[in-house]
Design a protein around this nucleic acid. Structure first.
Length: 467
RNA sequence: GUCCCCAUCGUCUAGAGGCCUAGGACACCUCCCUUUCACGGAGGCGACCGGGGUUCGAAUCCCCGUGGGGACGCCA
C-alpha cells in the first residue's frame, strides 16, 4: 500500500515552527516511502479562518520547500461530502440529534466540574432501546452528535508514543454538526482522512485526546484505521510554551531575521528526531534516513544558538550566487544598490566564512558600497596622532604600487618595520578608516577588494583632518 | 477535578539488559592559529528526577512517588 500522509493546518494564523516541523515530518515520511503528501486546509472555523492565513501557510511551506503532491484541499469546499456522510450516520443510528442549548450544556459542565467529575455530555438526547426521549423543543435548532460506544476500550499503537488505551467511559457523544449544520473538526478530519486514504496521521500530540473519538467514528463508518504518530510540542527558547503573545513566530520571520531555509529545515529535523550522531544533513539525506522510530516522545526546547550554528554552516556551504541574490535583496532593503555581480561574489567569498546571519552579513559588507562612519571610540582608540606619520608614509607607498593583497601587505610590513611598530598598530587604524569598524577580515584583502582609488580616498580623509 | 502523555549534561540528543568509568552536537571555559573580530583546530566542564522491585547484571523492564505538559468547546 502506498504511503499517504497529510498536513492539515487551520488557517487561523501563520505557519509557526511547530506546524512547520509537523509538515516537515509528514513530508519526509511520504518522500521516504515514495508516497504522497497531501495538504488540507481545515477552515471550518469560519469565524477565525482568513485567506491571509491560508496565504501565510502556503508561503511558509514554499519558503521551506515543502511541496505537496495533492491539494490544497479546503474543507469548506467539501460540505456536500460531509452532509452526505452525516445523513448516512443518522440513518444508521450512529449519530443523533441533540436539542440541548449552549446554556444548558454550560451549566451541566459547571456542576460536573464542581463535583470533581470530568465534564462530559450526559446523553440526555441519546436514543436507546426502551428509552423515551424528551419532547423536542420547537425553538431549538438541534446539533448532531456521534453515538460513541459506552463500553470497552479504544486503543492504538502510536508510532511515537507506543500503545495508548482509553476507556470509552472517558468519552462522550461529541458534536459532529453544529446547529447551523456545519460539521465540526473531529468529524471532518475523520471523513477526510478516510476519503483521502491517509495511511499515517502525523500531527501534534495535542491531538492524542481526539484520536480515540476519531477512531470510534472511523469504525462506525467502516473505515480502515490509519496509523497515528503524535509529535510532542516545541517549547520556546526559555522552556515556556509557545503562544501568540509569547515566542510563537511565523517561519517567515526566520527569513526576515536572516536565516537560510536550509538551516531552519536542518534544525527542525534534528529537533525531536535523530539519526545517531548526525547533526548536519541536507533534505535528501533526511528523507532517506527519516523514520518514526527515532522521534523523541518528550517536548523539545527551541535553541536559537544551535540554529545560529547551523545557519553559519549553510552560509558557508550554499551556492555563492544563491547567497549573493539573497544578500543583494537585503542590501537593497537597506537602500544600498550592490554594483557588479562579481564584486559582490568576491566580497561574500571573503565574508561568508565568518557570518552566521544574513542580515548581519549584509550589514557587515555595506561599507564596500557606502563610506562608513566609525564610532568616536574607535577613532580615539586607533587613529591616534602618533600613528599619523606612519599612515602618511603608507599612503605614499600605496599610491605607487600595483594593487594586490600581496603588495599591500608588503607595504604595510615595510612601514611597520620602518617605524618599529607592531603590525596591528598600523592595521587597526587602517581597518577603522576603511571599514568603519575594528573587526574585519585581513585588511590587505579588504583593501584589495575595495580598490586602490577608493581605499586611498578613505585613508586620505583622515590624513587631511589630522594635518 | 478527571483522563492522557512525558522525564539522560544548561539545551538538542545517542542509548531498545551487559559494548556505559553514559557517546555526539550547541553553548560555556582553556589553549593553538592570528593583523582585530570571527572562522578553524585541540582539550576541558557537564546528565541517567527519587524510592522500591525484577535480574548474576538496569539509563534501559515493572510499580509507587515527584515534577512538567496536554486534553476535557456548537475551536482546530
Amino acid at each position: 500500500m502506498t504511503v499517504r500522509t497529510r498536513f492539515a493546518p487551520s488557517p487561523t494564523g501563520f505557519l509557526h515552527i511547530g506546524g512547520a516541523r509537523t509538515a516537515l515530518f509528514s513530508w519526509a515520511y511520504a518522500k521516504k516511502y515514495s508516497g504522497k503528501f497531501i495538504l488540507r486546509i481545515e477552515d471550518t472555523d469560519v469565524e477565525r479562518s482568513t485567506p491571509a492565513a491560508v496565504q501565510a501557510i502556503l508561503d511558509g511551506m514554499a519558503w521551506l520547500g515543502l511541496d505537496y503532491d495533492e491539494g490544497p484541499f479546503y474543507q469548506m469546499q467539501r460540505m456536500e461530502t460531509y452532509e452526505k456522510v452525516l445523513q448516512t450516520m443518522l440513518d444508521a443510528g450512529t449519530a443523533y440529534y441533540c436539542y440541548c442549548s449552549k446554556e444548558e450544556l454550560e451549566t451541566l459542565r459547571e456542576t460536573q466540574m464542581q463535583q470533581g467529575l470530568k465534564p462530559r455530555y450526559d446523553g440526555r438526547w441519546r436514543p436507546e432501546v426502551g428509552k423515551t426521549l424528551p419532547q423536542a423543543p420547537q425553538d431549538i435548532q438541534p446539533v448532531i452528535r456521534f453515538k460513541n460506544p459506552q463500553t470497552g476500550m479504544v486503543a492504538w499503537d502510536d508510532l511515537v508514543k507506543g500503545r495508548i488505551e482509553i476507556s470509552n467511559e472517558e468519552l462522550d457523544d461529541l458534536i459532529v454538526a453544529r446547529a447551523d449544520g456545519t460539521p465540526t473538526y473531529n468529524f471532518c478530519v475523520v471523513v477526510d482522512d478516510f476519503e483521502m486514504g491517509i495511511t499515517q496521521v502525523i500531527r501534534g500530540d495535542d491531538h492524542v485526546n481526539n484520536t480515540p473519538r476519531q477512531i470510534n467514528m472511523l469504525i462506525a463508518l467502516g473505515a480502515k484505521i490509519p496509523q497515528y504518530a503524535h509529535l510532542s510540542m516545541i517549547l520556546g527558547d526559555d522552556g515556556q510554551k509557545l503562544s501568540k503573545r509569547h515566542g510563537a513566530v511565523s517561519v517567515m520571520q526566520y527569513h526576515e531575521d536572516g536565516y537560510l531555509p536550509e538551516a531552519v529545515l536542518n534544525y527542525l529535523a534534528r529537533l525531536g528526531w535523530s539519526h545517531g550522531d548526525a547533526e548536519i544533513f541536507n533534505m535528501q539525506q533526511f528523507c532517506e534516513w527519516f523514520d518514526l522510530d527515532h522521534i523523541t516522545p518528550s517536548a523539545a526546547q527551541f535553541n536559537t544558538e544551535k540554529l545560529n550554528w547551523l545557519n553559519a554552516h549553510y552560509i558557508k556551504e550554499i551556492n555563492i550566487s544563491l547567497l549573493a541574490s539573497d544578500i543583494r535583496a537585503r542590501l537593497q532593503a537597506n537602500r544600498i544598490e550592490p554594483s557588479g555581480a562579481s564584486f559582490l561574489n568576491n566580497i561574500l567569498t571573503l565574508y561568508r566564512e565568518r557570518a552566521n546571519n544574513l542580515n548581519q552579513l549584509a550589514k557587515d559588507i555595506a561599507y564596500f558600497y557606502t563610506r562608513p562612519t566609525p564610532s568616536a571610540e574607535d577613532i580615539e582608540k586607533y587613529i591616534t596622532p602618533e600613528i599619523m606619520p606612519a599612515m602618511q608614509k603608507l599612503q605614499q607607498l600605496l599610491s605607487n604600487i600595483e594593487w594586490t593583497a600581496e603588495t599591500i601587505h608588503h607595504e604595510i610590513s615595510a612601514v611597520v618595520a620602518e617605524f618599529s611598530l607592531k603590525f596591528p598598530k598600523v592595521a587597526m587604524p587602517l581597518r577603522v578608516m576603511i571599514t568603519g569598524t575594528a573587526q574585519s577580515p585581513s585588511i590587505d584583502q579588504v583593501m584589495d577588494l575595495l580598490g586602490k582609488e577608493e581605499t586611498l580616498a578613505r585613508i586620505q580623509k583622515y590624513l587631511s583632518v589630522c594635518t
